[in-house]
């Protein structure tokens, strides 16, 4: 079985690299064939990635996020999955290049340093842990994608405003499309992260006996989620569009990410099970 895991582990970064290559080709040339090939190869890669993680889970009877590197692989899958759903929904493949550089990087690092085996902490075998982490990582991935779409919006808006018609102008879809994609990804992210957080608190109550703990990561994630919910409704009711929404979405995620990293450095005891 280890041989099987090792083989897919090598194959995955190669596949993500190929997906990146074809999306780059599509972005630069806009040939329909490239768009179709990229989308189909991505579907196969996602399928293989799901089989890879599921078979690990079944074989070792764990949820396959036991190390930082396995979490990286899960994050790469989640980003790809959310991206794929948005691509299918909007029928717009020209933004793939902006995601698969990052996804390829995550998977490459993961594949280089990952080790397969049984976890030392029995908590990692708990199904609630699996649901909590799956939804949380999916939620963060969706919000990251929304931030990247917002970044694309800002880049394209800058080119149009500055009357510069470069690669970004030629390759990206309309501002309105990018805005819709960001809005959709944010909505999906809020729901998924919300479910993830809820299961986290529920699991903490079941295992540790308390619903909430004064932990930097928990506080930051909860506040970030509440801010996203508030921001979402504010934008919706005030019907704010375009530039303002993109700026809030991008800077909001950067702030969330930076605080999460700092929190992780300051308080490294909680959320560590290995």
């Amino acid at each position: 079985m280890d041989q099987f895991f090792q083989s897919i582990n090598v194959l995955l970064p190669l596949l993500y690299g190929s997906v990146l290559g074809i999306y780059t080709w599509y972005f630069l040339q806009s040939t329909r064939t490239a768009g179709v090939v990229a989308s189909r190869l991505l579907f196969l890669t996602i399928l293989l990635h799901i089989i890879f993680l599921t078979s690990q889970g079944i074989h070792y009877r764990i949820f396959p996020i036991t190390t930082v590197f396995s979490a990286m692989s899960m994050f790469a899958l989640d980003l790809s999955l959310i991206y794929y759903v948005i691509e299918k929904r909007t029928k717009e493949s020209r933004t793939g290049i902006f995601f698969f550089g990052i996804i390829f990087g995550f998977q490459l690092f993961s594949s280089m340093f990952i080790s397969f085996g049984e976890p030392t902490n029995n908590l990692l075998r708990n199904p609630t842990f699996g649901i909590h982490t799956t939804f949380t990582i999916l939620g963060i991935a969706a919000l990251a994608i929304a931030a990247l779409y917002s970044l694309m919006y800002l880049m394209l808006a800058k080119q149009i405003k500055g009357h510069r018609f470069g690669i970004i102008y030629d390759g990206l879809p309309a501002l309105e499309t990018l805005e819709n994609m960001a809005r959709y990804a944010t909505g999906v992210g809020i729901i998924l992260l919300g479910v993830g957080i809820l299961f986290g608190h529920f699991w903490a109550y079941k295992v540790l006996g308390y619903f909430f703990k004064l932990d930097v990561k928990i506080i930051v994630t909860d506040i970030a989620w509440l801010s996203y919910v508030f921001g979402w409704f504010y934008m919706k009711f005030k019907r704010l569009h375009g530039l303002r929404m993109s700026q809030v979405s991008m800077w909001g995620f950067i702030l969330f990410f930076v605080i999460l990293v700092i929190g992780n450095i300051l308080d490294s005891t909680f959320h560590r099970f290995i």
Binding site: L156, I160, Y169, P173, A174, L175, E176, T177, N180
Partner: peptide
């Protein structure tokens, strides 16, 4: 054509 880069619908 320029408007195609701003509006989708």
């Amino acid at each position: 054509e320029l408007s195609r880069k701003i509006y989708a619908k």
